[in-house]
């Protein structure tokens, strides 16, 4: 019990930068607090009513130079901190192309993590050391927050929106994974562990289907699972089907391309847009098509949607097999 830490481990590049910022602000904070308290103490003792041996002549009423000093001094310090912090914030919240992509779905009360090769794990996150990791989070019910204190990053898992963050682990080991947004009864049990592994170990772990052993039960990749779901849910009866009853846009090659909508707007076909197109197609109708696609709200789960999007993404460079009529 007497062996307790006072600071969290610092296990990512970003964590190092952010803790520097933290300690600089803390240093300033301590300086100000000590200065204010010391000044108060000295003044109270020196000018106590019973002390007649001090000069109380001509007490100042106000002084413009003083006011300017203590207006501008905090202002300048504040601006420095502001820019520094905004820069680091942009670092962790700007998606990077070279990052390993991982998706986490929050639901009452567990974290469900998806690796791109289809490995899934609950309340655990295995990642390799030394390369940027991009975690995309979404929630299936209420708001949660995916918090990794050892990396000094967290992101809210909001229903209906993909949020992401990037960090680069620098140390192997086991660290806390927490939910930091209150989400109901078992909020405090929505916790788990992050395992940062050597890249080779991670690769083995992935290939073994997340069991860490050599049993060759490698799972189907996300996109392959997505393809299956695409059929299960009947998407293929319209999209990409020869002679489908309904005229519908091809999904090949649309990922992250601009789409023209019926109302004249242009949108980028990113994951967010795809998700909406599946759950609530009426919200944005593709130009030249009719609002004929059924809404999958309540039918497709967040998990399935992620896989379908992975599948559509895999068609990024494909040509429409056959122009839908």
């Amino acid at each position: 019990m007497w062996n307790f830490p006072l600071v969290p481990p610092t296990a990512a590049e970003e964590a190092l930068h952010i803790s520097w910022l933290y300690w600089v602000i803390t240093g300033m904070a301590i300086f100000f607090v000590v200065a204010v308290c010391a000044a108060a103490l000295v003044l109270v003792v020196r000018y106590r009513a019973s002390n007649e041996n001090v000069n109380r002549d001509n007490p100042p009423e106000s002084d413009m130079r003083l006011e300017m000093t203590w207006t501008l001094m905090p202002l300048v310090l504040a601006l420095v901190i502001f820019f520094w912090a905004a820069k680091l914030y942009a670092d962790i919240y700007t998606p990077r192309d070279d990052a390993l992509e991982i998706i986490a779905i929050g639901k009452q009360w567990m974290w469900h993590v998806q690796h791109s090769n289809g490995v899934r794990e609950n309340n655990e996150l295995h990642i390799p050391v030394g390369r940027p990791i991009k975690v995309t989070v979404i929630s299936q019910d209420v708001i949660h927050a995916f918090s990794l204190p050892a990396f000094r990053v967290k992101r809210d898992a909001v229903p209906g929106r993909y949020n992401s963050m990037v960090f680069t682990p620098t140390k192997t080991g086991k660290f806390h994974l927490l939910c930091t947004e209150y989400c109901g009864t078992k909020h405090s049990e929505m916790i788990g562990s992050v395992y940062v592994m050597e890249p080779d170990d991670y690769q083995k772990w992935l290939e073994s289907g997340g069991k860490g052993t050599d049993s060759s039960s490698a799972p189907m990749s996300l996109e392959d699972q997505g393809k299956q779901i695409f059929t299960q849910l009947g998407c293929n009866t319209c999209h990409g089907a020869a002679g489908a009853a309904v005229r519908c846009p091809p999904l090949e090659g649309i990922y992250e391309k601009p789409i023209e909508l019926a109302n004249g707007q242009k949108v980028i076909a990113d994951a967010e847009y795809m998700r909406e197109s599946i759950l609530n197609p009426a919200a944005k109708i593709v130009k030249g098509y009719d609002n004929l696609m059924p809404a999958y709200q309540g039918v497709a789960s967040e998990d399935q949607i992620i896989k379908i999007i992975a599948y559509i993404k895999s068609l990024k460079d494909a040509k429409p097999a056959e122009a839908s009529k």
């Binding site: 930068h17 952010i18 910022l21 933290y22 602000i25 803390t26 300033m28 904070a29 100000f32 607090v33 204010v36 308290c37 108060a40 109270v44 504040a78 901190i81 502001f82 520094w84 912090a85 905004a86 820069k87 680091l88 914030y89 670092d91 962790i92 919240y93 927050a145 918090s147 204190p149 000094r152 990053v153 967290k154 930091t180 947004e181 209150y182």
Partner: peptide, 28 residues
Amino acid sequence: LGFIGLFTIGGVTGLHLAAMATNVHLTD
């Protein structure tokens, strides 16, 4: 006087939270 001391501590720790990067780590 207690107010001045404690409010100052409350105020300067507000800087940690106004700063975006440290806010992310400390929020909630």
